[in-house]
């Protein structure tokens, strides 16, 4: 009854469609990112996209047109940092994300002031998704799915062992860049609904949950995608029923499933 009522609202329909698509992409990309020890990049990108959003609002530009190129640029930069062996890369990434966040807050406080808008950017709002966002999410999701399926074996090789792949002539940097760009797009799209502080969990949690349960790469990928979609739908419904913020509810659902997976693994090991 209440679920049918929930789905009768256009904004909820938009949130559901866009959210399912974004969480599907985030989970697929997340498996590679987590296994390559690039989780911090996802987190860094979400902070950069917060800064970009704040600047875009201050300049009066359509947020997506401004933040998509900025975040893609940041993705290149963070990837470069992470692959430098001589650098303290996690410190560099942490510094970048804090700086982007600070810049965003400074810009907001000098222009519109710290209003509910900031709150929405930080922690997300279910009302944020417009019709254009839904179309864009569908486009990005289709691109991620097609590229992921076509390059599945190569992404596996690059994720498992960069040095070997390089030696056999795979263009490792190209695949890393592809991964970073797609992650950047996914994060920008999902950020306004999930919130800049919370979006990275959409990348990280499904992979962690799946890694607890499955032994093959293919199993992990499929389980991550499924658990991400289920958690999003669960979180969205919970947020409707108990009127909690959608971003936090989805993260809570992911955490719950992750803990279940840990428990299951512990039981299986005994």
């Amino acid at each position: 009854m209440s679920i049918l009522e929930m789905l009768s609202w256009p904004f909820m329909q938009r949130a559901l469609i866009a959210g399912v698509l974004v969480s599907l992409c985030a989970a697929l990309l997340g498996v590679s990112l987590v296994l390559k020890r690039y989780s911090m990049i996802g987190d860094g990108l979400s902070h950069v996209s917060f800064g970009a959003l704040a600047v875009a609002v201050a300049l009066g530009v359509t947020p997506l047109y401004f933040s998509i190129p900025v975040v893609i640029l940041a993705a290149f930069l963070l990837l470069r940092m992470a692959s430098r062996p001589h650098w303290n890369s996690d410190a560099a990434i942490a510094a970048t994300s804090a700086s982007a966040l600070a810049l965003g807050i400074l810009v907001i406080s000098r222009t519109t002031g710290m209003t509910t808008d900031v709150d929405n950017y930080m922690f997300g709002s279910v009302l944020a998704m417009t019709e254009a966002d839904v179309y864009l999410s569908a486009g990005v999701c289709a691109a991620v799915l097609v590229l992921f399926i076509l390059f599945y074996h190569k992404l596996f090789a690059v994720t498992f062992d960069e040095s070997f792949s390089r030696a056999t002539g795979l263009r490792v940097d190209r695949y890393n860049t592809l991964l970073a760009v797609l992650t950047a797009l996914t994060i920008v799209l999902g950020m306004r609904m999930m919130g800049a502080m919370l979006i990275s969990s959409l990348v990280i949690f499904p992979a962690l949950t799946a890694m607890r349960l499955f032994k093959s790469f293919r199993g992990v990928v499929i389980c991550a995608a499924a658990s991400s979609v289920v958690c999003f739908c669960g979180g969205l419904t919970a947020s409707w029923v108990w009127s909690t913020p959608v971003g936090a509810s989805v993260v809570a659902a992911n955490l719950a499933l992750f803990l279940c997976a840990c428990l299951l693994r512990a039981l299986r090991r005994r």
């Binding site: 498992f160 070997f164 792949s165 293919r218 992990v220």
Partner: peptide
């Protein structure tokens, strides 16, 4: 370090050797 807890079956790993640029 990352490889030590990588979820992949033996045949997935061996097959990845058949790829080349």
């Amino acid at each position: 370090r990352a490889q030590r807890d990588f979820p992949a079956t033996v045949s997935e790993v061996v097959l990845s050797g058949c790829l080349n640029g």
